[in-house]
Simulated scan of single mutants.
Amino acid sequence: MPSTAKHVVFDVVGTCVSFDAFYSRIDATIGDKLRQQTITPKNFGFTWQTVAEIEFTFLSISERYKQYKDVLRSMFYRTLWLSGVSDPRSFATDNERERCIEGYSLLELRTGCAEAIRTLRDGGFNVWCFTTGDLTRVRGYFQRSGVDMPLENFVSCDTKGIAKPALAAYRSVLQQFPAEDQKWFAAAHMWDVSAAVKVGFTGAYCTVYEKEPCQELFDEKIAVMADTLPEMAEGIVKASKL
Rank of each mutant, 00 (worst) to 15 (best):
1 M>S: 09
3 S>M: 09
4 T>Y: 05
6 K>V: 04
8 V>P: 05
8 V>C: 03
10 F>T: 02
10 F>W: 05
10 F>L: 07
11 D>K: 08
12 V>P: 03
13 V>P: 06
15 T>D: 07
17 V>N: 04
17 V>L: 06
18 S>L: 02
22 F>K: 00
22 F>Q: 01
23 Y>D: 05
28 A>T: 12
33 K>I: 03
37 Q>Y: 05
39 I>K: 11
42 K>L: 10
45 G>T: 12
46 F>L: 11
48 W>T: 00
51 V>S: 05
53 E>R: 13
56 F>S: 10
57 T>E: 05
58 F>A: 12
60 S>M: 07
61 I>S: 08
63 E>W: 07
65 Y>S: 00
69 K>E: 15
70 D>Q: 14
70 D>F: 13
70 D>R: 10
71 V>T: 10
71 V>L: 08
74 S>W: 04
75 M>H: 01
76 F>I: 06
77 Y>V: 06
78 R>F: 13
80 L>W: 08
81 W>G: 06
83 S>K: 05
83 S>D: 04
87 D>N: 15
88 P>C: 07
88 P>Y: 04
89 R>T: 11
90 S>C: 08
90 S>H: 13
91 F>L: 10
93 T>E: 03
95 N>P: 01
95 N>I: 14
96 E>W: 10
96 E>R: 09
100 C>N: 04
104 Y>T: 01
105 S>H: 15
105 S>N: 14
111 T>D: 15
115 E>I: 04
115 E>H: 06
116 A>D: 11
118 R>T: 13
119 T>W: 06
120 L>S: 05
120 L>R: 12
122 D>L: 14
123 G>L: 10
123 G>F: 10
125 F>R: 04
128 W>V: 14
129 C>E: 02
130 F>T: 02
131 T>H: 09
131 T>V: 08
132 T>H: 15
133 G>K: 02
138 V>Q: 14
138 V>G: 05
139 R>M: 05
140 G>Y: 03
140 G>E: 03
141 Y>M: 05
143 Q>Y: 01
144 R>N: 04
144 R>T: 00
145 S>Q: 00
145 S>N: 06
148 D>Q: 05
154 F>A: 04
154 F>K: 04
156 S>I: 00
156 S>C: 11
157 C>Y: 02
158 D>R: 07
160 K>A: 08
160 K>L: 13
160 K>S: 14
160 K>Y: 00
162 I>M: 08
164 K>T: 01
164 K>H: 00
169 A>C: 09
171 R>N: 02
174 L>G: 11
175 Q>G: 14
183 K>V: 01
185 F>L: 09
186 A>R: 03
187 A>N: 10
188 A>S: 15
189 H>T: 13
189 H>R: 03
193 V>G: 12
193 V>D: 15
197 V>K: 07
199 V>P: 11
200 G>M: 11
201 F>W: 01
201 F>C: 06
201 F>Y: 07
204 A>I: 08
204 A>P: 01
206 C>F: 05
207 T>Y: 09
209 Y>R: 03
211 K>T: 12
214 C>A: 15
214 C>V: 09
215 Q>A: 13
216 E>K: 09
216 E>D: 15
217 L>Y: 15
218 F>C: 03
222 I>F: 10
226 A>N: 01
227 D>W: 00
228 T>P: 01
229 L>M: 11
231 E>L: 12
233 A>I: 01
233 A>E: 02
234 E>M: 08
235 G>M: 13
236 I>Y: 00
237 V>E: 04
237 V>T: 06
238 K>R: 13
238 K>E: 08
240 S>Q: 00
242 L>T: 02
